[in-house]
Write a protein that binds this DNA or RNA. Structure first.
Lengths: 120, 120
DNA sequence: CCAAACCATGGACTACTGTCTATTGTTTTA
DNA sequence: TAAAACAATAGACAGTAGTCCATGGTTTGG
């Protein structure tokens, strides 16, 4: 498919898709036609974009995603790929804990706001 | 305390502290001295900075933190403050779920990388 | 056929965060 | 008292992420 269709299906703008491609998060091939330089995207790219989109929402940087996507698709060395992925899982679990801490703090603050004016 | 001490205790740079103050995440008072315009920070500000720091690490934006800090300290209307805090808790829990989804995806990818070449 | 819709490219631009620098003034300390 | 350390301010700067625009080429539908 061409970028317009990919844009519609992924919900990402053309510009964003091109940005991701420039950063090697996805790849494309040249169009069949010899007369233009349109890019052709496979269905797999749509799946990849869906993952990338979710990961970006979760706060994973483009640079980190490049590493991940490379590990998924380009790695000649499986153990290298494994290391990258495991490291990212660890990091994300840490982030979950951080967010949980913030949530705990907010819940405590909520109790105070709701009524606990016992001190001072 | 003055900004140097606050910087040491919080682990944030003077510049970052000033940035946060400009964005109303913390506040300070004028120094006792009449001859300078140094700012004076209370111990509470240190606690606030520790929260802010954790929240920034967890990916909460300065703009959102301004709303939260305002809800904590400046709100004349407790139910308004409550709404802001509850909304943020909901949002953070959603973010946790998003990150968990990404982790699940990565774990599945790990299985594939580790050996599961059964299909295709 | 021709206009509308599509595509690629490059660069400008925005917003956000944070750092660094220069300047100037104040306090501390040796 | 003089140097060193500290402070405030403003503006420049850098990196990240994404959008917008201008240009020019291509495809498609009426």
């Amino acid at each position: 498919m061409k970028i317009g269709e990919l844009s519609k299906k992924s919900g990402l703008s053309r510009d964003t898709i091109r940005l991701y491609e420039k950063n090697e998060l996805i790849s494309s091939s040249a169009s069949q036609s010899e007369t233009n330089n349109y890019r052709e995207y496979s269905d797999d790219v749509l799946l990849q974009l869906q993952f990338v989109s979710a990961a970006r929402t979760a706060g994973i940087s483009i640079a980190d995603l490049r590493e991940l996507m490379k590990a998924f698709f380009d790695s000649c060395d499986p153990s290298e790929a494994e290391n990258v992925i495991v490291a990212k899982i660890v990091e994300l679990n840490e982030r979950i804990e951080e967010i949980k801490n913030v949530v705990s703090f907010l819940e405590a603050a909520l109790l105070k706001v709701r009524g606990g004016h016992s001190e001072s």
